[in-house]
Amino acid sequence: METLEEAELCFPQINTSCKKRTRPQSESMFIYILLSFISLITVVLNLLVIVSISHFRQLHTPTNLLLLSLAVSDFLAGLFVMPFQIPITEPCWYLGDLVCVLYYVLNVIIVYASVINMVLISVDRYVAICDPLRYSTKITQRSVRICVVLCWIYCVFLSFLFLFDNLKQPGRYNSCYGQCVINVIVAVDIVLGFILPVSTIVVLYLRVFVVAVSQARAMRSHITAVKLQSSVTVTVKKSELKAARTLGVVVAVYILCYCPYYCVSLSSYDLMMGSSSNVFLVFLAYSNSCLNPVIYTFFYPWFRKSVKLIVTLEILHPQSCDTNMMKETTE
Rank of each mutant, 00 (worst) to 15 (best):
Q319G: 00
T330G: 10
G78L: 08
V294T: 03
N174K: 05
T22M: 11
I129L: 14
T246S: 15
I310V: 14
Y32S: 06
H317N: 13
V210P: 04
V282E: 11
L271F: 14
A252V: 12
H60G: 08
I86Q: 09
V144R: 00
V144S: 03
T42N: 02
F37R: 00
P87S: 09
S230A: 08
Y261K: 03
V72P: 03
M325A: 10
R21V: 15
L40N: 07
Y154V: 11
Y296E: 00
S122P: 03
L48Y: 06
V307R: 02
V191T: 10
V251C: 11
H60K: 15
V236W: 02
Y32T: 13
L161G: 05
L48I: 05
S268N: 15
C257A: 14
E314Q: 13
S289D: 01
L313H: 06
Y94H: 13
C18T: 01
T323C: 07
T140I: 04
N324V: 06
P318V: 15
F283I: 05
L196Y: 11
L291G: 02
Q141H: 03
L45M: 08
G78A: 08
T329C: 14
C100L: 00
N292A: 10
Y104K: 05
S267Q: 09
V186A: 14
V213P: 07
I195S: 06
E6A: 15
P83L: 10
Y286Q: 09
E5V: 05
I110K: 01
V156Q: 09
E27V: 11
F298T: 05
K308V: 04
V49G: 00
T235G: 15
M1E: 13
V264I: 15
V311K: 09
V144C: 00
M82N: 03
T140P: 03
L158C: 02
A113R: 08
C259M: 13
V226F: 09
N278K: 08
